[in-house]
Amino acid sequence: MKNFLRLTLAVATLMFAGLTHAQQVLRVSAIPDEAPTELQRKFKPLGSYLEQKLGMKVEFVPVTDYAASVEGLVNNKLDMVWFGGFTFVQASVRSNGKVIPLVQRAEDEEFKSVFITTDKSINRLEDLKGKTFAFGSESSTSGHLMPRYFLLAANINPDSDMKRVAFSGAHDATVAAVGGGRVDAGVLNISVWEKLLSQGKVASTLRVFHTTPGYYDYNWSVRSDMDPALRKKISDAFLALNPNDAQGKEILALQRASRFIPTRTENYASIEKAARNAGLLK
Rank of each mutant, 00 (worst) to 15 (best):
L5V: 15
L9W: 08
V11I: 15
F16T: 14
G18N: 13
G18H: 09
G18E: 05
G18V: 12
A22L: 13
R27V: 10
I31K: 05
D33R: 04
A35L: 13
P36M: 05
L39T: 04
Q40W: 05
K44F: 12
G47P: 05
S48R: 14
Y49K: 03
Y49N: 03
Q52I: 10
K53Q: 15
L54P: 05
L54V: 04
M56I: 13
V58S: 11
V61H: 10
P62V: 13
V63C: 07
V70M: 07
E71I: 13
L73R: 07
N75I: 07
K77C: 09
L78Q: 07
M80D: 04
G84I: 11
G84T: 15
V89C: 09
A91T: 14
S92V: 05
R94Y: 15
N96T: 11
V99A: 03
I100W: 10
I100Y: 12
L102E: 02
L102P: 04
Q104M: 14
E107N: 06
E109D: 12
E110I: 13
K112S: 13
S113C: 11
F115Y: 05
F115R: 02
I116N: 04
T118H: 03
T118Q: 15
D119W: 03
I122D: 10
R124N: 10
E126V: 07
G130N: 08
K131A: 08
E138T: 12
E138N: 11
S140V: 11
G143E: 06
R148W: 06
F150Y: 15
L151C: 06
A154N: 07
N155M: 04
P158W: 01
S160Q: 11
D161C: 06
M162Q: 01
V165I: 13
S168V: 00
S168F: 01
A170L: 00
A170G: 07
A170S: 15
T174K: 03
A177D: 10
D184G: 10
V187R: 05
K195L: 08
K195S: 02
S198C: 00
V202K: 01
S204I: 06
L206H: 06
R207I: 00
F209V: 05
F209I: 00
T212I: 09
P213G: 12
Y216S: 10
N219L: 14
W220G: 02
D225S: 15
D227I: 08
K232A: 14
K233D: 01
A237N: 04
A240M: 02
D245V: 08
A246K: 09
I251P: 02
A253P: 00
R256T: 08
A257P: 05
S258T: 14
I261A: 01
I261H: 00
T263D: 05
T263N: 06
R264K: 14
T265Y: 06
A269L: 13
A269K: 14
I271E: 01
E272D: 01
A274L: 09
N277P: 05
A278N: 11
G279L: 10
G279W: 13
L281V: 10
L281M: 07
K282I: 07
